[in-house]
Design a protein around this nucleic acid. Structure first.
Length: 367
DNA sequence: AATACGGGGTA
DNA sequence: TACCCAGTATT
C-alpha cells in the first residue's frame, strides 16, 4: 500500500489554493475584502444557494451600501428588502447586529472575535467566515460543503451531523488550516465542495486534492458522507382570511402548528372534521372578536416549510368591526393595520394577491 | 438531541 | 417528488 499525503500537510493547502486561484467563480462579494459586504453575503448564504443569493445581495447592497445605512434603517424596511430569501430571522439579527456594530465601526468593522461573538445571528461559522476572509484571522469554518469535503478527505464514515461528528469536523477544520491566506483557504474548501466534490457524482478526476483524499483512495466517494435520515413530510391544512377595510387588504393567517398554535388558539380539530372550510374561516374570525362577511372566495396555495406541506385555504372578508391581531413570521404579532400592512409577505401570499388582482379585485396591501 | 425557520434549485 | 443548500437559536 502506497503512502498517501494527508490534508494537514502544507502541500494540500498549496494545491487547493492554486486550484482556487484558477477556478473560483466570480461572485459579487469577492470584489474586495470589505467586512460588511462579506458579512451580509455570509448571512444570506445560510441554507441558501449562491445562485439564489446573487441578485438579492446586489439589491441589498445598493439599498444599504454601508453598515451605517443598514443600522439607520427601520426594521420593516430591512425585512422588505429581505423578501424572497426566507429565514427572516436572519434579517432581524443582521439588522440588530448592525446597530450594535455601527458605533464601533468608524474606521471599518472591528476585527475582534469577542465583539463578533456577542452579535445576534453570529455563530461559529459566520465568525470564522467573516474574520478569516476580511482580516485573515486563523479561524476555521464548518458548513454544508466542508462537511462533505472533510468527511471524504478523511473517510469519516460516521454521521458528521451528530454531536460527535460536529466536534470532529471543527477540530479537523482547524487542524488543516494553513498559516497564511486563511480566508482564501476556507473559501477554497467550500468552492471545491460546490464545484467538484459535489453530493452526487463528485468529479474526482478533476479534483486538485484527490491524491490527499482517503475516500477517493478507497473508492468510497459515493457512500461518504453517510446519508441523513429522511425527513418525514407532514401535510397540514391551514385557514387564512383576507380582511378588507378602508380600501386595504390584510392577510390573517392561522399558524400551522406548534408554538404558533398556542398563540392563535384556533382549534386544530376543525381541520380534521367534516366541518366546512367556510365555517372554519368564520370561526377563525369570531374567535378573534372580528365581525366580517365572507364572500367565500376560495384559494388554495402551497407553502413549503421544512417539515410540512401546507395547503392554505384563503377567503376574502369585509371587516366590519372589532380589533384583531394577526400572526405571521417568527411569532410576530401585529396589533395595528399599519404594522401588518407594512410587513413583508411570503411568496405564496404574494401569489395569492396576484390571483386576486387577476380576478379584478383591488388589492392594496402595500399601496 | 430535536426542532423551527423559507424558498429556490435540481435530477 | 425528494433532497440539497456558505446555519443559528431555542426547547
Amino acid at each position: 500500500m502506497d503512502l498517501m499525503s494527508t490534508p494537514d500537510a502544507p502541500e494540500f493547502a498549496t494545491a487547493l489554493l492554486a486550484w482556487f486561484d484558477a477556478h473560483q467563480r466570480i461572485l459579487p462579494w469577492r470584489d474586495n475584502r470589505d467586512a460588511y459586504r462579506i458579512w451580509v453575503s455570509e448571512v444570506m448564504l445560510q441554507q441558501t444557494q449562491v445562485k439564489t443569493v446573487i441578485p438579492h445581495f446586489e439589491r441589498f447592497l445598493r439599498r444599504f451600501p454601508t453598515i451605517h445605512d443598514l443600522s439607520a434603517a427601520d426594521e420593516q424596511t430591512v425585512l422588505r428588502e429581505w423578501e424572497g430569501l426566507g429565514y427572516y430571522r436572519r434579517a432581524k439579527h443582521l439588522h440588530q447586529a448592525a446597530k450594535q456594530l455601527a458605533p464601533l465601526s468608524t474606521n471599518g468593522l472591528p476585527s475582534d472575535p469577542k465583539t463578533w461573538e456577542e452579535l445576534p445571528g453570529v455563530g461559529r461559522y459566520i465568525l470564522g467566515a467573516v474574520l478569516s476572509q476580511a482580516f485573515d484571522l486563523r479561524l476555521p469554518i464548518v458548513e454544508a460543503n466542508t462537511i462533505r469535503v472533510l468527511s471524504r478527505l478523511f473517510a469519516y464514515r460516521d454521521d458528521p451531523r451528530d454531536t460527535t461528528g460536529k466536534k470532529w469536523l471543527w477540530q479537523t477544520a482547524e487542524r488543516i488550516l494553513p498559516t497564511a491566506r486563511i480566508g482564501d483557504f476556507n473559501q477554497a474548501l467550500m468552492e471545491l465542495g460546490a464545484l467538484v466534490c459535489t453530493p452526487d457524482a463528485p468529479a474526482c478526476s478533476k479534483c486538485p486534492v484527490a491524491s490527499f483524499c482517503a475516500a477517493n483512495h478507497l473508492g468510497e466517494q459515493a457512500s461518504i458522507p453517510m446519508a441523513p435520515t429522511a425527513t418525514v413530510i407532514e401535510s397540514v391544512r391551514e385557514v387564512a382570511v383576507i380582511l378588507r377595510r378602508a380600501g386595504r387588504m390584510l392577510l390573517v393567517q392561522r399558524p400551522k402548528t406548534g408554538r404558533w398554535a398556542d398563540m392563535w388558539e384556533f382549534p386544530r380539530t376543525v381541520l380534521t372534521t367534516d366541518e366546512s372550510n367556510d365555517q372554519a374561516a368564520g370561526r377563525l374570525l369570531t374567535e378573534q372578536g372580528i365581525t366580517a362577511k365572507l364572500d367565500c372566495q376560495f384559494h388554495e396555495l402551497r407553502h413549503g416549510v421544512t417539515r410540512y406541506r401546507i395547503q392554505l385555504a384563503a377567503w376574502l372578508a369585509d371587516h366590519e368591526a372589532g380589533e384583531f391581531a394577526a400572526i405571521g413570521y417568527q411569532n410576530q404579532v401585529w396589533t395595528s393595520l399599519e404594522e401588518l400592512a407594512n410587513y413583508p409577505v411570503s411568496v405564496p401570499q404574494r401569489q395569492l394577491i396576484q390571483r386576486l388582482r387577476s380576478d379584478g379585485r383591488s388589492v392594496s396591501l402595500f399601496d
